[in-house]
Design a protein around this nucleic acid. Structure first.
Length: 176
DNA sequence: GGTATTTGACCACTT
DNA sequence: AAAGTGGTCAAATAC
């Protein structure tokens, strides 16, 4: 209940959050540039909603635990993961995410395409629905973001049936 | 011109 | 059986 009030107080909800929602990566990038580690953001997020903040994102080694829970299908959303350790991972991924210049919410190394957004009662924040942009990949993920653009919750469902797409490319070691 | 995002509507499931 | 909520689709728009 208190959390609710807290959130309400935190989110006056602008009539058009999209104007600032769009450059989300930029926003975060700016934050990073300013020297404000995303960790603070996440912590804050978790503090705001300690209900079931599950951050399962590390695709680098597709979490077995996640896979297991994901296997449960819709029940995956029921799984409560250890946010403690996850937080560290999240931040790490967020860092990568900050590096992204595209407005894609690529916290992991896969390509996602947003196909919907909805304000769910369960959450104070809008929930965005993403699909892996790989043609035959059934993986989906739900991402709840605060109006500030902070990621409040991520829920993966399914497994990638393809290798991770190569990163954009790093202009390092280009000795040509 | 092409691709991704946004957003309202519709459908399915749960209570 | 009805209402409410969540998830997905599809058209329009933006980049």
């Amino acid at each position: 209940m208190q959390q609710h009030e807290k959130i309400a107080a935190l989110k006056p909800v602008a009539s058009r959050p999209f104007s600032s929602f769009r450059p989300l990566p930029k926003l975060l990038q700016d934050l990073t540039a300013t020297g404000s580690p995303p960790i603070t953001i996440l912590e804050e997020t978790v503090l705001v909603r300690p209900k079931a903040t599950r951050f399962s994102s590390p695709p680098s080694d597709l979490p077995t635990e996640m896979t297991a829970t994901m296997d449960a299908g819709s029940d995956a959303t029921r799984e409560e993961m250890e946010v403690d350790t996850e937080q560290a991972n999240c931040c790490d991924h967020l860092t990568a995410y900050h590096s992204a210049k595209k407005p894609r919410l690529s916290i992991d190394e896969y390509n996602w395409r947003k196909y919907g957004q909805k304000k769910v009662k369960e959450s104070e924040f809008p929930r965005s629905y993403y699909k892996c942009s790989y043609p035959s990949c059934p993986v989906k993920r739900k991402v709840e973001t605060t109006i500030d653009g902070q990621i409040a919750e991520i829920v993966y469902s399914g497994e990638h049936n393809h290798p991770k797409p190569l990163p954009p490319r790093k202009p390092l070691l280009s000795t040509s």
